[in-house]
């Protein structure tokens, strides 16, 4: 009996090889690095707090473009395999659909993490160049960007496992937006007098990914102390949420006819 890892890993590495051939990936990476560099010019428009603006723009570019990569490469992840029927020969091997899904997920996750690292290097380079401060807070912020990407990749994997890239993009973007809104939705709901609205808001808040919990970039830039516990709990939450999404994706994918 083989262990799952020896089947998941080749699928993951192939997914990386496939993903890094995506032209969109390089376009977004290019934009991100350009924006990080461009932040110096933007910051020069302000006579104060230029370094802060450089880092704000840099971190925002990293978050925006890495999520862009995660979503737009992720939405076709499973669908493409079924569409091009490359999945037929793979599933005819002793590979379960869950293993396949997990392999694809890991492959894309590794890809976006790789992109994140490249962007982070550009960010560090620019920060060092302009003499902006760098400390552990930035490491924590980047780490949680990585965790957020994991959740987004899991969301994209989920939608890609049963719907077209168009719809998957729509849904994943929707979840991304709602995930950042969920805290506001919650407080908005709590302000309501109608108990049903309150409950619905609470339910939404708990069901949606709380993506703001992975957003430490402002704290990092402003040197606000970030506790290790905060990072740890947020990471655990992200991992648990991703696992839940993958289980759901597996459940759906197992029941699907692959035509």
């Amino acid at each position: 009996m083989l262990n799952s890892g020896s089947r998941i890993w080749p699928i993951a590495t192939n997914t990386v090889r496939e993903a890094v051939r995506h032209r969109l990936l390089y376009t977004l990476l290019f934009f991100a690095v350009t924006m990080i560099g461009f932040s110096v010019l933007i910051a020069s428009l302000s006579y104060v707090e230029g370094e802060r603006i450089i880092q704000d723009v840099g971190l925002a570019s990293i978050r925006l473009f890495s999520v862009g990569i995660a979503i737009f490469v992720g939405i076709g992840l499973i669908h493409g395999e079924v569409e091009r029927r490359t999945i037929y020969t793979i599933l005819a091997k002793p590979v379960t659909r869950s293993e396949f899904l997990l392999g694809k997920f890991l492959g894309l996750l590794l890809t976006v993490w790789l992109q994140l690292c490249l962007m982070a290097i550009a960010f560090v380079a620019v920060s060092v160049l302009v003499g902006a401060g760098l400390d552990l807070g930035y490491v924590a912020a980047m780490l949680l960007v990585g965790v957020e990407l994991m959740v987004i990749v899991a969301v994209a994997t989920l939608f890609s496992s049963f719907t077209t890239p168009m719809l998957a993009a729509f849904f994943t973007l929707g979840i991304y937006a709602l995930g950042h809104l969920s805290r506001d939705l919650y407080s908005l709901g709590q302000a309501s007098d109608v108990p049903a609205v309150k409950q619905a808001a609470t339910l939404l808040y708990r069901a949606l990914p709380d993506l703001e919990s992975f957003n430490l970039s402002t704290q990092a830039v402003h040197g606000v102390a970030i506790s290790g516990a905060e990072v740890g709990w947020a990471s655990l939450y992200g991992v648990a949420y991703s696992i839940a999404l993958l289980i759901l994706a597996s459940f759906i994918f197992h029941r699907r006819d692959l035509e």
Partner: peptide, 8 residues
């Protein structure tokens, strides 16, 4: 979550 950059 992009408040900082919008603020800038």
């Amino acid at each position: 979550g992009f408040g900082a950059v919008l603020a800038d």
